[in-house]
Simulated assay, not measured.
Amino acid sequence: MVPLGWIGGTCGLLLAAAISMYANALLGRLHEAGGKRHIRYRDLAGHIYGRKMYALTWALQYINLFMINTGFIILAGQALKAIYVLFRDDGLLKLPYCIALAGFVCALFAFGIPYLSALRICIPGSQSNRIFTTIGAVANLVFAYNTGMLPEIQATIRPPVVKNMEKALWFQFTIGSLPLYAVTFMGYWAYGSSTSSYLLNSVHGPAWIKVVANFSAFLQTVIALHIFASPMYEYLDTRFGSGQGGPFAIHNVVFRVAVRGGYLTVNTLVAAMLPFLGDFMSLTGALSTFPLTFVLANHMYLMVKGPKLSAFQKGWHWLNVVGFSLLSVTAAVAALRLIILDSSTYHLFADM
């Protein structure tokens, strides 16, 4: 919301929800394409386009998941640092240390309210910098709503599959979005208002509120990371694990500990190295979330339902394909520019 402002940010959140709901509804209607349930997005893409698109979709999905998981570790580390600073602002506990601790806790959890940070209400720099930052924010809005994993998330839904999937989507993008809006708007107001900002950040302010908020954020990110890491665990277990001896056999337990721990170690290392990961998430949103959720969904719908669509409907879906493709390219250019600028400002393992 910061680069877009109150009006732009609020409209952007609502518009991103609407177009995300629409795109996911298209995917839901393709869930039983060809008379067969496709429980993975890449299976659906492979069914429609062939093996090469299966591989490309798989790659984009797991890049998405890796970035989401890495981002969660950064948020957890920021929450820990925010709690520490409330009591001892001596600079001894750096952000990379907090991220490493958060990654360790996440690894432990794997085996067995969005973070309210101080916001920059005005975007510094030249007019061109504000423009590119705004374009990057648009990609982040889309990233906030989508994972490119609808078939995987809804795979166990009971028949009639498509109808119930649409009901679940309507619930998710209406009632389910209210907590997101509430936390976002309250956090933005709290740190944007001069009075509330003073109360929250003053020495005599209600420190316990910030402790509870950040500790809740820490717990939430640990749980969320485990959920979004599950598809990667499933792939690694299926691809490289041994099915003999059951899940609790010693060799299978050791394998899971080593593989999952190794995956989270890589996540944590990247998170500590690049705490300005928001720029990379903008790039991921441009190169992965936009194509998976909007471009590919509309084109797959054309491929499967094309003969039954009117000329107007075909034109509408082609407009979406072309429009979101152009937006994806534009957002990617903006994200690359921000990465270059921030790379010259922040060093690796920066304490932000």
Score class of each variant (00 low, 15 high):
52 K>Y: 08
53 M>T: 12
54 Y>P: 00
56 L>W: 10
56 L>F: 09
58 W>L: 10
59 A>G: 08
62 Y>G: 02
63 I>R: 04
64 N>K: 11
65 L>K: 03
66 F>Q: 04
67 M>T: 12
68 I>T: 09
68 I>H: 00
68 I>W: 01
71 G>W: 03
71 G>Q: 09
72 F>S: 01
72 F>C: 10
73 I>D: 06
73 I>M: 12
75 L>E: 03
75 L>G: 08
75 L>C: 05
77 G>W: 11
78 Q>T: 13
82 A>E: 08
82 A>I: 05
83 I>T: 09
85 V>A: 10
85 V>C: 03
86 L>S: 10
86 L>A: 10
87 F>L: 02
89 D>T: 05
89 D>M: 06
90 D>Q: 06
91 G>Q: 07
91 G>S: 04
91 G>M: 07
92 L>T: 13
95 L>S: 06
95 L>R: 10
98 C>H: 09
98 C>S: 13
99 I>M: 10
99 I>N: 05
99 I>Q: 08
100 A>K: 06
101 L>C: 10
103 G>D: 06
103 G>T: 06
105 V>M: 14
107 A>N: 09
108 L>F: 13
108 L>A: 11
108 L>D: 04
110 A>P: 07
110 A>T: 14
111 F>L: 11
111 F>R: 09
112 G>A: 12
117 S>G: 15
118 A>Y: 10
119 L>A: 14
119 L>E: 11
120 R>L: 11
121 I>M: 14
122 C>A: 12
122 C>D: 09
122 C>T: 11
123 I>T: 15
123 I>S: 11
124 P>E: 13
125 G>Y: 07
127 Q>C: 10
128 S>D: 11
131 I>Y: 13
132 F>M: 13
132 F>L: 13
133 T>Q: 12
133 T>L: 07
133 T>R: 12
137 A>Y: 05
139 A>D: 02
141 L>W: 00
142 V>M: 15
142 V>F: 15
147 T>L: 14
147 T>N: 05
148 G>R: 03
148 G>Q: 06
150 L>P: 00
156 T>Q: 12
156 T>E: 11
158 R>F: 06
159 P>H: 13
161 V>C: 08
163 K>Q: 13
163 K>R: 14
165 M>V: 08
165 M>N: 01
170 W>M: 03
170 W>E: 01
171 F>L: 11
174 T>A: 02
175 I>A: 10
175 I>V: 12
177 S>K: 01
180 L>R: 02
181 Y>G: 03
181 Y>C: 00
181 Y>M: 01
184 T>I: 09
186 M>I: 15
186 M>H: 02
187 G>E: 03
193 S>E: 07
197 S>R: 14
197 S>V: 02
197 S>T: 05
